[in-house]
Design a protein around this nucleic acid. Sequence first.
DNA 1: TCGGGTCAAGTGGCTCAGCCACTAGGCCAC
DNA 2: GTGGCCTAGTGGCTGAGCCACTTGACCCGA
Lengths: 233, 233
Amino acid sequence: MSEALRPMVKSRLYEQVLERLRAYVTEAGLKAGDKLPAERELAASLGVSRASVKQAIVVLEVQGLVEARHGGGTYLVRDTLDVEPVEQLVERRKRLPEVLEAREALETKLAELAAERRTEDELDAIRASLDFMHEEIVDGGFGVEGDRRFHAAVTAAAHSSLLADFMKAIAGQITESRNESLRQPGRPHRSLAQHTAIYEAIAAGDPKKAAAAMRKHVRTVAKVRLLDWVPED
Amino acid sequence: MSEALRPMVKSRLYEQVLERLRAYVTEAGLKAGDKLPAERELAASLGVSRASVKQAIVVLEVQGLVEARHGGGTYLVRDTLDVEPVEQLVERRKRLPEVLEAREALETKLAELAAERRTEDELDAIRASLDFMHEEIVDGGFGVEGDRRFHAAVTAAAHSSLLADFMKAIAGQITESRNESLRQPGRPHRSLAQHTAIYEAIAAGDPKKAAAAMRKHVRTVAKVRLLDWVPED
DNA sequence: TCGGGTCAAGTGGCTCAGCCACTAGGCCAC
DNA sequence: GTGGCCTAGTGGCTGAGCCACTTGACCCGA
């Protein structure tokens, strides 16, 4: 599609106010806890209505960058009005070695929690993923989908939405590494065996064993990757 | 701190409008591409001013959930007005037990990596945070800032921007729990001792020992919290 | 029949003026 | 000091209104 013919985006006024506000905070060197000028004042300075200023402030409010106290002024929460890196994760998460480190940290804990908290149904789901992966391999596949289901089932059984969210943040990268690592000779069978060990520890309700088994598994994946990958820094 | 005496949060009107809007979309079964009722109509139905409806719509707009076309109506971008999991982290992360679980997972790994990768300068920084915390305690403080610096220094020494980002995502909650836990009798000294043990393992370049020491430390914090907190669900 | 122009209704963008509720700080009485 | 009171400053919200843009119906001429 032609760059010139993409849909016209008419900048909303509040977006411009937002930019001016960010610039102002930077230029004036405002820090966390400092007070922003009053809405009426900002409106007058920028030559816009108070409603537009208000809309911009609401945006900053929902982003947690600013705190408006009824009757008491509006205050900076951080030293800047730029959004936090957390929201930029989507970009950052592309670096594989770090993803594998994070994966180890998260999945080890998830396996531990799963061993403590899994219900019978969840245990069945994990076992089902094992069976599925076995089928895939017997049919000559790599067990990619079974692998995915296994880790998803363990994550679900851990009952931690926060850790699950973190996993989701690196899910795309994990998928990529899974696809490649399971194509290594002998890997599908070995992976299935490791999954089984993790499953047994979870079934037995042994958190330490589950964590150890998961750690070993994730490290296996990491090692394979390192054979053909050299971290750039 | 008493649950009843925490700061009162008066819900802004636009937040209520936001909720009603989400509920409406769900109930009416609206899908991506469907048109929302006109602003004037919404204002009339909900019994609020158009400005308030507008503020809510601006919020949905910056979250990419809705697209407002000048003169053409406002349209759903997704099948729901709920924010995506990753963007939702900020909300979700408020649940303390989960935060502590995540913290254990992340910091254990961070300590391990720090033991492997720390430079001399970073080691100095960790030691400095120890000294700082010691000063604070001698001066009758709780060592809050020293504690923060210690964990920040360890995180930095691990050289993993992804894990660092995850930590950042729960930083606010950790701060809260830190403030309270360090106020328990005898806690500052005990915490300092645990920090020292972690430091020594990192200085010795012993990843396993560092991880174990950090795990113990984080679990101590978690236990203290569980004494006076009962998760509501 | 088809392409193009016109027009009016519907709708979002933005402003203005104003009232209310709450906060913060100074002042006074105790 | 301490607490109560008052007031200016400030955010929360409203209602009315104008403008700009989109949409679709309608009409006209080729």
